[in-house]
Amino acid sequence: MVFMDNFIKRNKKIALELFYKMSKIRFTEEKIAEKYSEEKMRCPTHLYTGQEAIAAAVCTLLKRSDFVISTHRSHGHYLAKGGDLNKMIAEIYGKVTGCSKGKGGSMHLIDRRVNFMGSTAIVAGTIPVAVGLGLSIKLHKTNQVSCVFFGDGAVEEGVFYESINFAILKKLPVLFICENNRYSVYSPLKVRQPEGRNIYEMVKAMGCATDFGDGNDALGVYEKVKPAIESIRKGNGPFFFEFATYRWREHCGPNYDNDIGYRSEKEFDFWKKKDPLRLLEEKLLRSSVVKRKDIETIDENISQEVEAAFEFAEKSPFPEKDDVFKHLYNECAQ
């Protein structure tokens, strides 16, 4: 704890940036949950509440020029990388002002401006794409990092192993972040992977540098991933992290679903006590370099940003009929 307090004292700006990002994700997700029943956000939506520390810490370490690519549960990654909030909410509302012009919805976010390269809805589907971005970095010799976020379910897909293998083989600058939230929809880890085998150890056995950590501890994630990114930039090849975390709400949708019986209230309470946002807030306040007033100001600003984003989305027009038939191909001449 002393170490963390010192960290905050030495890196006040970074600690506040982490808090800002996590709080922004939390406000956004909870606002979506609050307004989802209005039936204006008409697409499958996977909320990130409870997992914010991982996206915030990893993306704070990445540069704008580094690539991030993600999954169906990507709001947090998109926002942490600096993705445009207005465009994300408009996308979920199916508006033409959305980041994908209404064609993608919550599960297909993109913001090329900050090199958030896309998120898709097929489990493990973007892992090889991240490796391909890594290959392009190596070919262009640009010293960037390609980072991919995915869940514990993705580790069960064949393409995961194929991708890790190739990244190691070619020593590609890829940062693999596995957010182990213990469930694939309603299926717990124990029915999907043998007990006693750790994902990060299995990947280590493939020849990849790996590590494991508490995904609800933002400062801890930051401290662990920092040297890994430096190592990747030095040309030492990929790095894989497994971070333990927990999603608070249902797999897909705005509700809590502990009542339906696939996970226990006790388990949920355990993780809720480990709320990554409150844990960071406590540490910030305890460090004495951050005052409650600072926190309140940040939250107030975020609240306004989020309100404005929903207003922007609601006021934006829907795409036109002709828009259905655009963007099938890129027809720029070569």
Partner: peptide, 14 residues
């Protein structure tokens, strides 16, 4: 499968 994804990723960066 992965090598197709690798092609996709590489193509996103030129």
């Amino acid at each position: 499968n992965a090598m197709t994804g690798v092609a996709i990723g590489a193509s996103l960066n030129g």
